[in-house]
Computed example of a mutant assay.
Amino acid sequence: MSHTAHIPSHRKPRRSASKLALRAGVAGGVLSTIAVAGAAGPANAEPVTETIEMPTLGSLDTELASAVSASAEAAKQEALDLSLKAQEDAAIAKAAKEAKKAKAEADRKAEAAKAEAERAEKARAEAQERASRTEARTTLSTSSSGSSSSSSSQVATGSAAAIVAFARAQIGDAYVMGGTGPNSWDCSGLVQAAYRQAGIDLPRVSGSQSSMGTSVSLSNLQPGDILYWGSRSGSYHVAIYVGGGKYVGAQNPSTGVVERSLDWDMPSGAVRIR
């Protein structure tokens, strides 16, 4: 017999292996249970059981799908908002461009209408001027035909003769603005010098010269009368009537002092200073 056969063992009783029961309803989604039994107690002791609810894969899939769907919906809404904003911006830009184009067209039409009105007014004024000159020519022609002998044989006498003689003596001289002789003249400078030969002092400028004396009709002219163009108090050109339907005047830098027919440039009126 062994010497140790009856020696009682001092080891603690070896615990039985803990029981771990895991029931995971992976496919079916049931509750999983973990049962832990302690082996330290008596053999017939009740096992301690703890139940833990674990999420199922089916539940995780559902939540993940819901989150993905919500994210996709938000991205879709954001894209839609951006698209609408882009459309609004494009519509605003198009409207502004069309408004600018319409304004430019309206301005162009207004300018064209203004220019047309100015042309019409100018044409009307020119037509009135032509009509006035035609009427004057007709009156002068009628008067001349009624007394052709006296018109063609108008002879300057007295002071008028001196005025006409001086004016004709300057034919061919140059025209110079502000000229008062002896070899260059402007229109009023020539008239002033011619009248000085008759002992008559006249103002220097054409507007003042035509304002003096007595107004006479173009159909009743006499040699030595002053012809004017423009209004009587605001004439811009003067010359001397020399008889026979003609006048002598310092016209412009191109022609100088010349003798012309009244028909070449019909004057606006005449004055007599004697």
Score class of each variant (00 low, 15 high):
residue 254 S to Y: 14
residue 274 R to Q: 09
residue 17 A to S: 12
residue 118 E to H: 08
residue 109 K to M: 09
residue 99 A to C: 04
residue 197 Q to G: 01
residue 105 E to G: 03
residue 35 A to N: 10
residue 183 N to E: 07
residue 135 E to D: 12
residue 248 V to H: 01
residue 248 V to E: 01
residue 203 P to S: 05
residue 106 A to E: 14
residue 146 G to M: 12
residue 94 K to W: 03
residue 18 S to N: 10
residue 164 V to S: 00
residue 217 S to H: 06
residue 86 A to H: 08
residue 129 E to W: 07
residue 14 R to D: 10
residue 229 W to A: 02
residue 196 R to W: 06
residue 176 V to P: 00
residue 261 S to I: 01
residue 200 I to Y: 03
residue 41 G to C: 04
residue 73 E to Y: 05
residue 228 Y to T: 00
residue 232 R to G: 03
residue 38 G to K: 08
residue 31 L to W: 06
residue 155 V to Q: 14
residue 180 T to F: 01
residue 61 D to P: 00
residue 204 R to Y: 07
residue 27 A to R: 14
residue 149 S to N: 10
residue 150 S to V: 10
residue 160 A to G: 04
residue 102 A to V: 04
residue 169 A to D: 15
residue 43 A to N: 11
residue 96 A to T: 08
residue 123 A to Q: 13
residue 208 S to W: 05
residue 219 S to N: 07
residue 226 I to P: 00
residue 223 P to D: 07
residue 107 D to C: 04
residue 264 W to K: 08
residue 238 V to A: 07
residue 103 K to D: 03
residue 28 G to I: 06
residue 130 R to I: 10
residue 151 S to K: 11
residue 169 A to P: 03
residue 171 I to P: 01
residue 87 Q to I: 11
residue 216 V to Q: 01
residue 13 P to W: 04
residue 59 S to W: 13
residue 191 V to T: 15
residue 187 C to G: 01
residue 62 T to E: 05
residue 155 V to W: 02
residue 86 A to D: 11
residue 273 I to V: 15
residue 168 R to H: 04
residue 172 G to R: 05
residue 84 L to I: 11
residue 34 I to H: 00
residue 118 E to K: 15
residue 48 V to F: 09
residue 245 G to W: 01
residue 74 A to R: 11
residue 121 E to W: 02
residue 145 S to R: 15
residue 92 I to H: 08
residue 205 V to T: 15
residue 206 S to H: 01
residue 143 S to Y: 09
residue 13 P to A: 12
residue 166 F to R: 06
residue 17 A to N: 11
residue 185 W to I: 04
residue 110 A to G: 06
residue 65 A to D: 10
residue 219 S to E: 07
residue 35 A to Y: 03
residue 143 S to G: 14
residue 51 T to W: 08
residue 115 A to G: 08
residue 131 A to K: 14
residue 158 G to H: 09
residue 244 G to R: 04
residue 168 R to Y: 00
residue 105 E to M: 03
residue 253 P to D: 04
residue 78 E to Q: 13
residue 37 A to L: 04
residue 262 L to G: 02
residue 107 D to S: 10
residue 270 A to W: 00
residue 102 A to F: 01
residue 232 R to D: 00
